[in-house]
Nucleic acid binder design. Sequence first.
DNA 1: ATCGAATAGTTCGATGCCTAAACTTAATCG
DNA 2: CGATTAAGTTTAGGCATCGAACTATTCGAT
Lengths: 384, 384
Amino acid sequence: MRRHNSALVLGAIADSPGISRAGVAARTGLTKATVSSLVDRAIVAGLVVDGEPAHREGPGRRGTALTLSPAGPHGLGVEIGVDYIATCLVDLTGRVSRQRIRPADNRAQPANRVLVKVARAIRSVFSELPVVVGGIGVAVPGLVENSTGLLRTAPNLGWRDVDIPAELRDRAALADIPVLAGNEANFAALGEMWSGEHPELRDFIHVSAEIGIGAGIVMDGTLFEGVRGFGGEIGHLSVDAKGPQCSCGARGCLEAVAGQDAILAQSGVSDVPALVARLESGDRKALTAVRPVARYLGTALSNVVNLLDVPTIVLGGTYAALGPWLQEPLQEELTLRVVSAAWSPITILQSTLGTEAAIRGAATSAVRAIIADPDPFITATVPG
Amino acid sequence: MRRHNSALVLGAIADSPGISRAGVAARTGLTKATVSSLVDRAIVAGLVVDGEPAHREGPGRRGTALTLSPAGPHGLGVEIGVDYIATCLVDLTGRVSRQRIRPADNRAQPANRVLVKVARAIRSVFSELPVVVGGIGVAVPGLVENSTGLLRTAPNLGWRDVDIPAELRDRAALADIPVLAGNEANFAALGEMWSGEHPELRDFIHVSAEIGIGAGIVMDGTLFEGVRGFGGEIGHLSVDAKGPQCSCGARGCLEAVAGQDAILAQSGVSDVPALVARLESGDRKALTAVRPVARYLGTALSNVVNLLDVPTIVLGGTYAALGPWLQEPLQEELTLRVVSAAWSPITILQSTLGTEAAIRGAATSAVRAIIADPDPFITATVPG
DNA sequence: ATCGAATAGTTCGATGCCTAAACTTAATCG
DNA sequence: CGATTAAGTTTAGGCATCGAACTATTCGAT
């Protein structure tokens, strides 16, 4: 009961920083008395601070502005990439207070060795900054089972069946700080949503092409992971029954025709910045190479939209860079294939966080977990 | 609080009929005292009956068997088909107590005229049987918006923007009996799950081919409808970029290559029973016609599974009839294309309810709504 | 047969959280 | 400077759950 209402109150403060106790009461349907008592507990626990009276029109006492405390627990994001380990700290308000990327050739190393390094990175964050870490989010390029938290397979790292939370808890002496591992494409989608750049973004697909093609699907502000957590594997949607062979064994997977490698091979360029330069200069070969990519991506996304009825698509990673050239043919394909497009068009946006989306999402997930269920943290901090 | 716990208790009784109060307490985590008081209210409201002491091993008093009351509120299912109106009554235990199909050429009629007939059918159920109707589910072959309950479009009926619940409430004088409208394919999936034939079925896709191809997606026992309710539109997934033109304007939609019309046209037979007869007799043309259907269906379903990570597929409607000939090539295609198939194979089942699935699902949805949130019904029935 | 152990269900007082309403504080407006 | 309006606090009261003691029922051992 109180647990649920604490979450309600914290959620209201997170959604509209600077809101007053009376405002929270109006929004949540609780009484002012209840809100007062719950807010007091949150303040004592260090989750909330009340600031200056906010200015308002007309007569009457001004409410004190409640905000999540920047000095409260932080979320630590860790991203295990193929050739780097990145860390990032985020406070309750969503502000990034520390970010660091360490190059590392993780592909050549077995999981335990890499996790030793990750643990060291985590401990170094702990020792360098005097903040309370309330949770850790670990983004990995692989499939994470949601019931167990196990990384089932990470093809590009060559890992299988690694219990990342358990390993890190042991190696970094984390006591009972919650650790959650997740797919990087999923975290990237959340990161983009929470970036604040697109305030209305609550139902969307975030697609990005890196080595594979990853997608994060968010519906009603919540990540959609499928039954076991292996959902959103958009890279192996079939877009051309007679298309080229994919590494997975099937034919015509999206990844095989619209992945980064396929794009670069088709356009005869060695990397993405070079491709963008050619596109900007109007190079005909580059332009004709990108068009079918958009078509294929559009076919795959149409399938997703027909199935999930999601109104918005966010282009991330390499697709964000190619956005200006993808947008139009993509829109055409979607309009043609999506059944509901006739009465509600699909919006296409470009990612603003780019490659930082995943780690921001991982770190912010950790703090959001506290906001979504603050009671454990509060009762651990406040004795009474 | 009590509302939530009442739902918990009723849910436990629905899940394991014959459970004792102590069993409910153990399963829900509530205390025996709380369960007793909640069960008493449910009994007074007529939702639950306690029966004979159940037999059990060992010493100790036997618990009284609690079951949902067959005399409690019933769910009324209505199906508005293209050429019939069907009604069906289901009690809280899931038993079907009355079923009736009235032929009617609804395609030729505007919506109001048809709804007048539907209202008459509903009133006739009310007058014929002395049962309390606790809710009505209406299955329609169209897209229903979940936020408003509006039928946005039903191509085969030629209807657009019809507020079925409101219309029926007026025309059939329903007072405040809740009415929920929904897509027939979705109701069919729920009907199949609740039929009791597949007890473990909680995560699956139910696909059926009638005039179009419909799918209902169930995850964690809950219908997945997409953001606005237009999800699961599997009929227009793209399975062959260069395939034939579909009525929707795009090319190579599943419906165009694996719908009932396409199957019959390919095999040169006039109806499904005839096709089944030919297949059984080993007719080569029929056999070679069905195989690509399975392939295409497999491609579309692989896309769905890769996206939603659903472990089971149930073949319904025409596909159920063709099940024996579809199963093998379908399984092959899924194994090839589904990324997670390597470590968790996809199960393919055949529907047991056939064409009755939708109406059963609609009726059962109405009673399940009461079980999922019994408090409104209880407080309306029990004064104190 | 009788007693004891085990299990089901009820009764009753205690607890905790929320609510309602009165009250205090703080601001605007005439 | 007092009336009015709104924010926030205090206090008394209510309701649902819990814990513990109690009754009821059954088996098995003496």
